[in-house]
């Protein structure tokens, strides 16, 4: 297995009373697999993803195990972990508006991982960045490379985020509600792009979403989270057609009124 998450827990000790955001989550992902992590906002799915990459604030206490290609990400030093971040595992966040640095040209942000992890010269970095941007489905990469984030539409920004995550061809891409902030037609196109990337590069994708339809659209397997725990998991069609848990049924049923869930989706 490429990724093994075992009994992962996240507790915020600075909250009163202490908040257990993730409570003993376990799952596995193979190379090139497409796994969906579903659940309402506040169910701990985003926190799980951030814990895997070590992106939680210092106040969060993380326990359990996250093994990636046989190495435990939780026990390694911060220097070692930084060598994995952005190189072997990348992440795309929900808010393409704020996740990009407003005062840095898009091209430089796409190249960021190259500057951190390689000693490539500028022209080579640019070539690689343009390739990644093409892979992420950005039209006219040369122009976007020189653009500022505020000059792009929401969908384009999210594609720029995806390009920046893909620039080093990671084995695992975590997509944290990548389409929630976008309108429906753009959503579908972004999902197509993610599927393309999985097919062409063999990148495993952990898709986090409150929207089971989005997960069904892309993933082969799904795990449903509630109150920090996985309550149900299995092949996506099976879970969809005969959900065991009432909560899962509720999630499927709530699909038409998903506006309600959208509001706090970022904490999901």
């Amino acid at each position: 297995m490429m990724l093994e998450v075992e009994n992962l827990s996240v507790v915020f000790r600075d909250r009163r009373p202490p908040l257990t955001a993730v409570d003993g989550v376990s799952f596995q992902m193979g190379e090139g697999e497409l796994l969906g992590l579903a659940g309402e906002s506040g169910s701990g799915k985003s926190r799980t993803a951030h814990a895997i990459l070590g992106l939680l604030p210092a106040a969060a206490e993380v326990s359990g195990g996250v093994r990636f290609q046989g190495r435990d990400l939780l026990t390694m030093s911060s220097v070692e972990r930084r060598q994995v971040q952005g190189k072997d595992i990348s992440i795309v966040f929900q808010e393409p508006m704020t996740s990009l640095n407003p005062t840095m040209r898009v091209g430089r942000q796409v190249e960021d991982a190259l500057r951190v992890h390689t000693k490539m010269a500028a022209p080579e970095r640019k070539t690689r960045a343009l390739e990644a941007m093409e892979l992420a489905g950005l039209p006219d990469p040369e122009r976007v490379y020189r653009a500022w984030p505020h000059e792009l539409s929401g969908g384009m920004r999210q594609r720029a985020m995806i390009a920046s995550a893909l620039v080093l061809r990671p084995r695992l891409l975590i997509a944290d509600e990548p389409t929630t902030a976008l309108d429906v037609t753009v959503q579908a196109k972004i999902l197509d792009t993610l599927r393309e990337i999985n097919r062409k590069e063999g990148t495993a994708i952990l898709l986090i979403s409150h929207d089971l339809l989005v997960i069904r659209n892309l993933c082969t397997r799904v795990a449903v989270m509630k109150d920090g725990r996985i309550v149900e998991s299995g092949p996506v069609d099976q879970v969809f057609q005969s959900p065991r848990e009432d909560y899962t049924k509720l999630l499927i049923a709530s699909r038409p009124t998903r506006k309600k869930l959208q509001g706090g989706g970022s904490h999901g």
Partner: peptide
């Protein structure tokens, strides 16, 4: 948020 993005790049 962009700071979190920067950290995620290593």
């Amino acid at each position: 948020d962009y700071v979190r993005t920067a950290y995620s790049k290593g």
